[in-house]
Simulated scan of single mutants.
Amino acid sequence: MSVPYDASHVVSVEPLRRGPVGLVVSRIATMCLVELQKLRHDRTELVTRAIQPALWLLIFGETFTRLRVIPTGNVPYLDYLAPGILAQSALFVAIFYGIQIIWERDAGVLAKLLVTPTPRVAMVSGKAFAAGIRALAQALVVLVLAAVLGVAMTTNPLRLLGVCVAVVLGSACFCCLSITIAGLVLSRDRLMGIGQAITMPLFFGSNALYPVDLMPGWLQVVNLVNPLSYEVDALRGLLIGTPADLSLDFGVLAVAAVTMICIASALLGRLAR
């Protein structure tokens, strides 16, 4: 016997709708997962990228520790240098991230992404924090090497979490700087040239290698407006316990990251033209 159909008992199920914030968060998480997949499939990149910071620590750090020509107080120079090299390695990972954007433009991937409902700020934020994830993997290699060389670093979990936040914020800022440059020059070759031209001034114009007091006046001004200096200061204070204004450091890094994300998002559409 057939049972009569009663439509009044049918419950309609609405698809789950995310708000703007939920959409941004989900896209950022997706980009970070994609980046982790890339790292899993290409582990050799971590090894090759670790060569340069290893040379800085092994040769530059060990030599200047013995020479004692850079006054760092009671802190051994190698200990003083290690956080700066950590920040440098993260900078080198992030500053050429715009090349990937140009490759996606040339392959037609970017145009497809831009016609989806995903906000541009979500795309850029996802790539920025994906660069942070990649930089964290690089930072782990540097920290292990520094520990092997005898650098006295903290093991406090909260301080190490702060190190991760500083590295991610710094990498997000410089990744978006790279995307901004890509949106202006629209060429991988030009981006490579500009990236190489600004990387070393950012590094040498920070407190990564020497205290601010040793810098000439004009370089101290550069150091004051250089986001890398605040990242190094935060890393140094968290890792080896030197005096640091962490609230200022994290505030500057957060503002710099948000500002660069907004600028890069505004220029993203120019790449797809």
Rank of each mutant, 00 (worst) to 15 (best):
L114W: 11
V21I: 15
R18S: 14
A122D: 05
M260N: 10
A137W: 05
A147W: 08
A7F: 15
L239H: 03
L228C: 01
W218H: 09
G98I: 02
N223Y: 06
L271G: 02
V168K: 02
L169G: 00
L55P: 07
V25M: 15
N74Q: 13
C32W: 07
M31P: 02
C262I: 13
L58A: 12
L177F: 09
V115S: 14
L238S: 02
G205F: 09
L149Q: 07
T154P: 00
F204Y: 13
A208L: 01
M153S: 11
R188D: 10
L36T: 04
A50M: 08
F64Q: 05
E45D: 13
R120Y: 02
R18A: 14
L228M: 07
N74Y: 11
C176V: 05
T118K: 13
C175V: 12
G195D: 04
A130T: 08
S26I: 03
T154H: 00
V25N: 07
A7K: 13
L209Y: 04
T116F: 13
A128G: 13
D213T: 06
G19H: 01
G237E: 03
Q52D: 09
P83S: 03
L235F: 00
P15I: 11
V25C: 12
E14F: 14
R105V: 08
T65A: 11
C262L: 15
N74W: 10
V148L: 08
L67S: 03
V255F: 05
S8G: 15
V115L: 13
L78I: 11
K112Q: 14
M200S: 10
A111W: 02
G195S: 06
L209D: 01
E104S: 06
E35M: 04
A152H: 14
R273C: 02
F96M: 09
A137K: 06
N74I: 10
L91S: 07
A197W: 09
H9Q: 15
R190Y: 09
G108T: 06
L214E: 01
V221M: 12
C164V: 15
L268R: 08
Q52C: 03
A50N: 03
S26V: 06
Y230L: 01
S171L: 07
C176Q: 11
F129A: 04
A130C: 12
L114R: 12
S247G: 15
S26N: 13
E45V: 14
R188G: 12
V21W: 15
A29P: 04
G61R: 00
D42S: 10
E35N: 03
G217H: 12
V222A: 09
R190H: 09
Y210V: 09
S8K: 15
R188C: 06
C262V: 15
L186N: 09
V185C: 04
G162K: 07
L248N: 05
R43F: 07
F204C: 00
Y230V: 00
G170K: 09
A111Y: 06
L267Y: 11
R236Q: 04
F204Q: 01
V185D: 01
L186K: 11
L136K: 01
H41F: 10
D245E: 10
M200G: 02
M31W: 12
L145N: 00
V93Q: 13
L149A: 03
P83C: 03
Q100S: 11
L145K: 00
A152P: 03
T65M: 07
L271Q: 04
K127T: 05
R236E: 02
L23S: 15
V121K: 05
A152W: 08
S187N: 08
M215K: 10
C173M: 13
